Simulated scan of single mutants.
Amino acid sequence: MSGRGSGSRGIGALAAAMVLVLAGCASAGAGGGEADPGSTSGAPPALSAEIVQGRGDVRDGVVAIVVTNDSDEEVVVDHAEYRSSALVEPLVGGDDSTIPAGASRALRGTLPQPTCATGPIVDEVVVVLADGTEVRLDPGDPYDQIPTLTDAPCTRLAVERVVDVAWLPIAVPDPALGADATVSLRLTPTGDGALEVRSVEPTVLLALVDAAGQRTTEVPLDVTIEPDGGAQTIAFAVRPGRCDAHAIAEDKQGTIFVFQVVLDGVERTLQLPSDDATRDALLAYVAASCGLG
Rank of each mutant, 00 (worst) to 15 (best):
P240Y: 06
L221E: 01
I65W: 08
A281S: 14
E226K: 07
T148A: 13
G12I: 12
V261L: 04
G293C: 04
E81P: 05
R239P: 15
R186M: 10
G42P: 11
V183M: 10
R161S: 12
A194P: 09
V183S: 01
V261T: 15
A277S: 10
G54N: 14
R186I: 06
G119T: 05
G140H: 05
I225V: 06
L221H: 04
A176T: 07
P227S: 09
T216P: 08
L221N: 01
H246L: 13
A277H: 12
R55Y: 12
A13V: 00
R215Y: 10
P220L: 01
E267S: 08
P227H: 02
S41R: 15
L272S: 04
G24L: 07
G254I: 11
P100R: 02
D78S: 14
R239A: 14
C25M: 15
A46C: 01
R136K: 15
T255C: 02
Q53G: 07
E134A: 09
P142K: 06
L292I: 11
L206S: 12
V58Q: 12
A166T: 15
Q260D: 13
G38M: 07
L22E: 11
E34S: 10
Q113K: 02
V92C: 08
V88M: 09
S274P: 08
F259M: 02
P45W: 05
A176S: 12
L168Q: 13
T255Q: 06
A288M: 14
P240I: 08
A176L: 05
S6T: 04
R161D: 14
A30W: 03
P202I: 15
G61S: 07
R83H: 10
T148M: 15
V162Q: 02
S84E: 00
D222L: 01
A231S: 07
R268C: 06
D95F: 03
T115C: 12
L206M: 14
P273Y: 04
S8E: 09
D228W: 02
V125A: 01
H79L: 05
V135R: 04
Q53N: 02
T278V: 13
V127Q: 11
D251V: 11
G3V: 11
